Computed example of a mutant assay.
Amino acid sequence: MPTTALQDQLERGVAALGLALPAGAVQRLLDYRALLERWNAAYNLTAVRDPAEQVTRHLLDSLAILPYVQGDTLADLGTGPGLPGIPLAIAAPGRQVLLVDSNGKKVRFLREAIRALKLEGVQAVQSRVEDVPGQFDCITARAFASLADMLAWGGRLLAPRGVWLAMKGQAPDEELPGVPAGFAVRAVHALAVPGLAARRHLVVLGRDTA
């Protein structure tokens, strides 16, 4: 698909999501997608190989949670090739972003993407979630694990007033009772990703202050 068609698709999707992106963000998002496509030939970073599907399933799917992102620091756990962390960093620059994955090939790609796209304040680390230090205002996780496992492994990373954004497909009703003590579900949002028929949900969690 020609680049102009992908740009039109992305711009329409961003408008449908009601987002206002910084100058140059659309081009940087497309540059990220193109870099992912090039590396994918050798490293198998994503099963989604059609460029238009990558715009929908990777870029717009990631951007759909942007209105819920908050704070000065963000950790994207199990980020894979940088989803949703890199699109969020491009769309809302200025916060410190840590991309975490245990797969060395994916982290090598992440570091090249950070360099090539000149993503200031973004770092990639090869690590298990259990070994990541610090605390973060916002934590994102996309199709990473059950809510119970996510919080068991990484709950300590959430700052006291922080927000945990867990991206899911179907509404994870059966997972909600498994949220461990000390955490609470703040909201569950159905997300409408432009061009995507599949269901998407966002579970917003925080520390239980009761």
Rank of each mutant, 00 (worst) to 15 (best):
P81M: 03
V48P: 03
D131P: 08
V188G: 09
G182A: 12
V125E: 13
D50W: 01
A116F: 07
Q7A: 15
P87I: 01
W164Y: 15
V107N: 02
H58G: 07
V203T: 11
Q123D: 14
F136M: 11
D50N: 08
F144Q: 09
P177Q: 05
N103H: 11
T79H: 00
L6R: 11
L147Q: 08
G80M: 05
V204H: 05
L191N: 15
F109L: 12
L151F: 08
A5F: 05
W39R: 13
R111A: 02
P172C: 02
G104C: 03
D137M: 13
A145E: 10
Q7D: 09
Q126G: 14
A92G: 02
L119R: 09
E53L: 05
L35N: 09
D61V: 07
G182L: 10
E112S: 12
A92D: 11
L196P: 04
A91E: 00
A64W: 00
G134C: 13
L35I: 10
L36Q: 05
P87K: 05
T79C: 01
V163I: 13
A143W: 04
S146C: 09
Q70T: 11
A75L: 01
V69D: 04
Q9I: 05
R199T: 09
L119W: 10
G85S: 01
R12C: 12
R95D: 04
A187H: 15
H201M: 06
G85P: 01
R12D: 15
P67A: 07
A166S: 04
M150G: 06
R33Q: 15
D72V: 00
P87L: 06
L66M: 05
A192W: 06
I114D: 07
G104E: 06
G80W: 04
A171H: 15
L205S: 10
P81D: 00
A113Q: 07
Q135W: 10
L66G: 05
V193G: 11
T209W: 13
P194W: 08
V129M: 12
L88D: 03
Q27P: 05
A141T: 12
T3P: 00
L63M: 04
E175V: 08
D72L: 02
L83R: 02
L45V: 04
V107Y: 00
V69T: 04
V100P: 07
G155E: 01
L60S: 08
A41K: 14
A145F: 03
V26A: 10
A159M: 06
A92F: 05
Y43I: 03
A190T: 14
K118N: 14
L176A: 08
L30M: 09
L36C: 13
P67D: 10
P22K: 14
N44S: 09
L45K: 06
V100L: 08
A15G: 15
R156N: 12
G78H: 01
V107R: 02
L59K: 00
L99K: 03
V179W: 09
P81N: 00
V125K: 10
C138V: 11
P81K: 02
R128A: 14
A25H: 07
A75G: 00
L88N: 02
Q123N: 13
A20N: 11
M1N: 08
V125M: 14
A192N: 15
D208M: 05
A52Q: 04
L35E: 12
G82T: 00
L59R: 03
L21H: 10
D61H: 08
L119K: 10
A25M: 09
G85N: 01
M167G: 12
R115S: 14
